[in-house]
Design a protein around this nucleic acid. Structure first.
Length: 139
DNA sequence: GCCAACGTTGGC
DNA sequence: GCCAACGTTGGC
């Protein structure tokens, strides 16, 4: 079971909009980068991902799960997309500053490759951020 | 709004 | 197949 992080500009697609889709979820589109696409293709149904807001917020705000694996992006079928549904909101959003300040998260892809829009996380990183976000030992 | 970092493209 | 040039992303 792998863990992921999905980045979005809140102006383009926000956590609030994601939540509004409920359990049926929504298509995660707009991937136009090869490494991101490779990660996207590795995502399996049921796996969880953090939802990160770029731009002004720069924080992980919630958790989504994969409900449909890679299929053609309906906005550009030469690329891929997945479907995700909101699982839960983080009681406390985890900001980029907090992530950068934590020595244990120094190796995180978010810190090293800020531009990659679909990123893998290690189990340890996932657990640390869940705790920072106020979810205790939930994973 | 600027600029650094990175990914992609295209000429050789 | 290398690498310079260019475009885009995203933090500051």
């Amino acid at each position: 079971m792998a863990y992921w992080l999905l980045k979005s500009e809140p102006e383009e697609w926000s956590w609030a909009e994601q939540v509004a889709q409920g359990g049926k979820g929504a298509e995660w589109t707009g991937i136009r980068n090869f490494s991101a696409r490779n990660n996207l293709r590795a995502m399996k149904k049921g796996e969880q991902a953090f939802f990160y807001h770029t731009g002004k917020e720069r924080a992980i705000v919630g958790i989504v799960k994969v409900i449909a694996e890679a299929h053609p992006d309906s906005t550009d079928t030469t690329w891929g997309a997945i479907d995700v549904a909101a699982v839960k909101k983080l009681p406390t959003p985890v900001s980029l500053d907090q992530i950068k300040a934590d020595k244990r998260l120094k190796g995180m892809v978010l810190v090293r490759l800020a531009r990659l829009s679909v990123q893998p996380l290690t189990d340890a990183e996932w657990r640390i951020i869940c705790q920072m976000g106020g979810l205790g030992s939930t994973r």
